[in-house]
Design a binder for these strands. Structure first.
Length: 349
DNA sequence: GAAACGTGGTC
DNA sequence: TGACCAAGTTT
């Protein structure tokens, strides 16, 4: 790796000073963030909640959820008291629903085992459900000013470019972590972590990075290669398979629709859903009740590891289901089923 | 280490 | 328009 320059401690200091100065001026204003250098530490509950919501999720997508959650549940104790179904409904549309189940488990653990106070060390945070290496480090640094090595996708990209790391990810992860750690110091650790992430999000972007306005391009080995966007080098991803399935919109004639509670484990775990067939190459029709099922067309949806065509069938009938008003269902369902329900309702008129 | 796990925006 | 991508964690 081409990191000779940064082995000098005065160079490391220069890079740190340049990026922190940039952050002092250019930090994004975000609902869960205190201004750079603020005397008041941000509420660990808000830091934790934002970090969980932001896992593999964009700021614009997570923001309204953060606003809604903190308004409805201002403290971790409030969140710990929420019924499972209410929490899952509030999370509907955000994706990666295991996060919501772990969020509740974590809130309850903090409330019951830690007196409503978040652990203030990385190791303590790491014991909590849904809190992995990144989130533990981020909360420790941002909420508790701990000297933690906060490594997310942004940091990996910035560091891969700064040091022109040729090893492809994901194999390069340990190496990138060590390099990121080489820049961490006890001075302003929370601001340092956020400065690195802001740089990655706004300047050192995955595509067309803005090297001309980058505060640390002078020390960037990737910039010197002339094609910084080549980093981090990646291995090819496997193709995404396609699956087919049927979804059934059963209505009771009084504005309610039949939903089912999905098992806690697996895809869309713990969420409400429409009754469906199996999903695969050639699924067979398996309607939940005998009825006069009408073809309502199909919807397309893309998951992380497969894409799906869901043929929608509509009928009127009865049965043992979670009967829910159409309005409430549209708000509580994960997106794939919301799309299928909308299709069914539009077709049925 | 690899695979499972959502969604919406971008180019 | 399809592939890529976003503040990862769990199994």
């Amino acid at each position: 790796m081409d990191d000779v320059a940064l082995h000098k401690s005065d160079t490391k200091s220069a890079v740190r000073a340049a990026l922190l100065a940039w952050y002092d001026e250019r930090a994004r204003t975000l609902p869960w963030r205190s201004p750079p250098g603020a005397a008041e530490r941000t509420d660990p509950y808000r830091v934790w909640l934002s970090e969980v919501m932001l896992q593999q999720t964009t700021v614009p997508h997570a923001t309204p959820y953060f606003q809604s959650f903190t308004q409805r549940w201002p403290t971790v104790n409030d969140l710990a008291a929420v019924a499972d179904a209410d929490l899952m409904a509030a999370w509907a549309g955000l994706g990666y629903y295991a996060r919501a189940r772990n969020l509740l488990a974590c809130a309850r653990a903090v409330a019951s085992q830690h007196g409503g106070v978040f652990p203030d060390t990385e190791a303590g945070l790491l014991t909590l459900p849904g809190v992995g290496a990144y989130t533990a480090a981020a909360v420790a640094a941002i909420a508790f000013d701990r000297e933690a090595n906060v490594v997310d996708g942004n940091v990996e990209r910035v560091v891969a470019r700064l040091f022109a790391v040729e090893t492809p990810v994901p194999a390069a992860r340990p190496e990138l972590r060590v390099l990121a750690g080489s820049l961490v110091e006890a001075h302003r650790p929370g601001d340092w972590a956020q400065a690195l992430m802001d740089l990655g999000a706004t300047v050192c972007r995955p595509k067309s990075p803005s090297c001309l306005i980058c505060p640390i391009s002078a020390w960037c080995a990737g910039y010197r290669t002339g094609e910084p966007e080549r980093y981090p080098v990646k291995t090819k991803k496997a193709e995404r398979p396609h699956r087919l399935g049927f979804a059934y919109v059963l209505r009771d004639g009084a504005g309610r629709v039949a939903l089912v509670q999905r098992p806690d484990k697996g895809l869309l775990g713990g969420m409400l859903g429409l009754p469906t067939s199996d999903w695969g190459a050639a699924p067979s029709e398996t309607p939940p009740v005998k009825a006069d099922w009408i073809d309502a067309g199909a919807i397309e949806h893309v998951f992380t590891h497969f894409s799906l065509t869901l043929a929608v069938r509509v009928a009127e009938g009865q049965g043992d289901f979670v009967w829910t008003s159409e309005e409430a269902a549209l708000k509580a369902l994960p997106t794939v089923f919301r799309k299928a329900l909308e299709r069914g309702l539009a077709s049925a008129g």
